[in-house]
Structures are given as structure tokens and as C-alpha cells.
Design a protein around this nucleic acid. Sequence first.
DNA 1: CGGGACTCCTGCCAGC
DNA 2: TGCTGGCAGGAGTCCC
Length: 295
Amino acid sequence: MPELPEVETVRRGLVPVMEGHTIRAVRLSRPDLRFPLPGDFAARLEGRRVESLSRRAKYLLARLDSDETLLMHLGMTGRFTVFAPGGRKLNLGDFYYEEPAQNAGSGVHDHVLFELDDGSLIVYTDPRRFGLMDIVRNGTPHPLLEGLGVEPLEPELNAEHLWGAFRGKRAPLKAALIDQRLIAGLGNIYACEALYRARLSPLRIASTLARRARPEQRLEALVEAIRAVLSRAIEEGGSTLRDYARIDGSPGGFQSVFDVYDREGQPCLRDGCPGMVRRIVQSGRSTFYCPRCQR
DNA sequence: CGGGACTCCTGCCAGC
DNA sequence: TGCTGGCAGGAGTCCC
């Protein structure tokens, strides 16, 4: 599943297809994804125009002209495929959609299909079904969005914020970074990458970076690392790992885009560091790091 | 309350 | 070649 950069890549691909268009029809292959879909899911979307498509953390938010918002999360294996009107090839920015549309939505794991007013088909496919969709009335707080922390690419993520978030935190740094209540959008891969870049051990107790009265340099370095890692990944159009691909189906970026993730047993890439990348398990998830240069 | 384990689900791949 | 166990980008829920 996509982390923030992959979700942002999907959003950018869907914007020219969805924004300003009216949803003509919605087809569901089943009544639920991770959670049950609203019983009137299709009815509340059909005939509605998509005013804008935005992102909050790893959620996509399609604002409708009905004063409601369609909320979508891709979970681990969710993806969208777009089929151009009449099977024609369509060039939308960097994205090409050229698959024949006759089979759209008929795959075993195609769960939701949106048909737009220009004939475009958008298919949501999700083998593991950890993704979710919901419709919320604008202005009504949604339980899934309410507790989310700061957007890592916005100015609200800074050393002060981390200092406050880490103060008194007994959890290891890695766990703190993927805690969506503190920073919203970092996942397993980019948390590893950011810690590597900042030379911080994933095992370090978060509060040890918030002991002094003022945020120290290492927190600045961590903020810089998070930003750099995420923005680079967005520039590259999201990373490819197993089943994730760009919205047009072409692989996003190149395989060796990671400095530590999935590099167990390989040499540390830092100049002059003789360390080897190690894999450990933290709260049930893989962490990759260099024990030599990450402290 | 904070933090970690468990859980949902399917596909894939290494190893036997 | 075929089966089995482990692992996978998320995150809500439960339990201590």
C-alpha cells in the first residue's frame, strides 16, 4: 500500500479525469471493502459532480457538488485504473490510459467502478481489501480523519512539533514516525528511509530527542529527512514495490530508489560507512537500518 | 493512558 | 513440480 507519495501520485493522475466531471453511474461487486460501504453509496454519488480531488494523509477526498465528500483509502493493495472514453488513447499530463474498456471492472478484485459523464471508467481494484470508501457530509467530523497528525510536507511539521510529539514518548522512533496521530502519511518504507537519512536509530526511544528545553539539531535533521524522502518519491511518481504501479500501469520510478528499505545484508550506502543493512522486527513490521551509522 | 500484539485479506515467493 | 510458511506499503481494536 501506498504511502503518502503513492497516494499523491494517484491523486495527480486522477485530477484531470475526475475534477469537473459528473459521476454517471457507480457499480459495486460487493457491499464492503474493509468496512461496509454506505447502503446508499451509489445513489449518493450518481449525478454528482466532482468539484475537487484532494488528499489528507493517505486519504483521497473527492468533494462533490452535493455538500458531501467521497473519502477513499487504498489500504495495502488498492489501486485505480482509468479507461479512456470509447477505448481511445488519452494523454493527460504524464499519464496515458489506453487499455480497452470492455473488460473494465470485471476482474476478481475489481470492487468499485465509476462511470463519468464523458464515458471514462475508473476502476478500484484491491485484492486484500484493506482499503475503504465512505461518504461524509462536509463539515461533519469523520472518525478516521479526526485524530490525524500534521501533514509532513506542510510547514506545520517542524522541529517544535516533533519536540512536542516526542516528549515523554517511550516508543521507539520508528513506531513514533508511523503513528498517524503524530505525523500523517509516513508509512513503513519512508519511516525507514527518513531515519536512515537523518542517521537516527529506529530503536532509539523517541523521548531521548526531546530532553532539552529546546528542539535540538537532530530534530531539524529529521524534519529535513522526512521532507526530502517524501518529496523525492513524489517527484519520481511513487515507488514500485510488488503490486504497486503508476495509475497508467507503468512502473513508478525505479527499483533501487530505496537507500535502506529491503536491502538487508547489503552494504550501507553512506560514504565511508562500513556497515551492513540489518532487518529487525518492530511491533510486527520490518525495519531496515544501518546499526553502524544510525544512532 | 500508552504501547504492543493481533486482526482483517489475498498473492507471491523462497525453501523444502 | 507442488506444497507450506512467511511476508507484504495500513491501521482499528483489544488487552495489559
